[in-house]
Simulated scan of single mutants.
Amino acid sequence: MSRTLSKQFTDTAKPAKPKRRRPSSLSIRVSDEERAILQRKAGKRSIGAYVREKALGDEQAPRRRSVAKPSIDSVLLGKVLGKFGQSEQVTVLFLLLAAAENERVTMGKKDRAALHAACADMREVRALVMGALGLRGEEPSYAKASED
């Protein structure tokens, strides 16, 4: 009796999912030289996509494209760039440099040089993160103000 009850529970707990029919595969053997030729001709596409295009031409069924998820690194770099843009410390650093350049703040040459180096480092970090994310952008307004 318990097996019957267990089976009923299992059957009602998990509704049956319709099985997804996968496309059938087609396999051919090629030599290393032939594979190299196919890879060269395929370019950025997969060899399968290249062969499918050549064999079927306009008759091939439309393919479902996968959505590329950003890598964890891209997500983290985006967060770093966001924090960098929101940081009041960065703005204050550039404002301090502008004030030192306009002699509104008394600062020795060594301190001013260190401030210049820190601002240059901030610009470089921002540019590197944006480059890693494949972004190009304008210089932020605080960076432009310090160059004047």
Rank of each mutant, 00 (worst) to 15 (best):
L56V: 06
S27C: 05
S46G: 08
S24P: 04
A36E: 08
Y50L: 01
V51C: 00
K41E: 14
G48E: 03
V75R: 08
K41R: 09
V51F: 00
P62S: 07
V30Y: 06
R45A: 12
D73C: 01
Q60P: 03
R45Y: 09
K79A: 03
L76R: 11
K79E: 08
I28D: 02
S66V: 13
I28L: 12
A42G: 10
E33Y: 15
S66D: 07
G48T: 11
P23V: 07
I72P: 00
G57Q: 06
K44Y: 10
A36F: 14
E53K: 07
A42N: 10
I47G: 07
R65W: 01
E33R: 15
K54S: 10
G43T: 12
A68Q: 10
A61G: 00
K79M: 07
E33M: 05
L38K: 05
A61D: 00
A42T: 14
S27W: 03
A61Y: 05
K69Y: 09
A55K: 05
L77A: 09
Q60I: 15
D73G: 02
P23F: 15
D58V: 12
S74H: 15
K41P: 06
S24V: 13
S66E: 02
R63T: 04
V67K: 13
S66K: 09
L77D: 09
K54T: 15
G78R: 02
A42R: 08
E33G: 07
S31A: 05
L38E: 06
G48N: 03
R64C: 02
K54P: 05
I28K: 04
E33I: 01
I72M: 07
E34H: 13
S71G: 04
S31T: 14
D73L: 04
V51A: 01
P62C: 02
Y50V: 04
G57P: 10
S46P: 00
L56N: 11
Q39D: 08
D58Q: 09
R45V: 06
R29C: 03
R64H: 09
R35I: 05
I37V: 14
G57C: 08
R29L: 14
R40F: 11
A36L: 15
L38W: 14
A49P: 03
S24L: 13
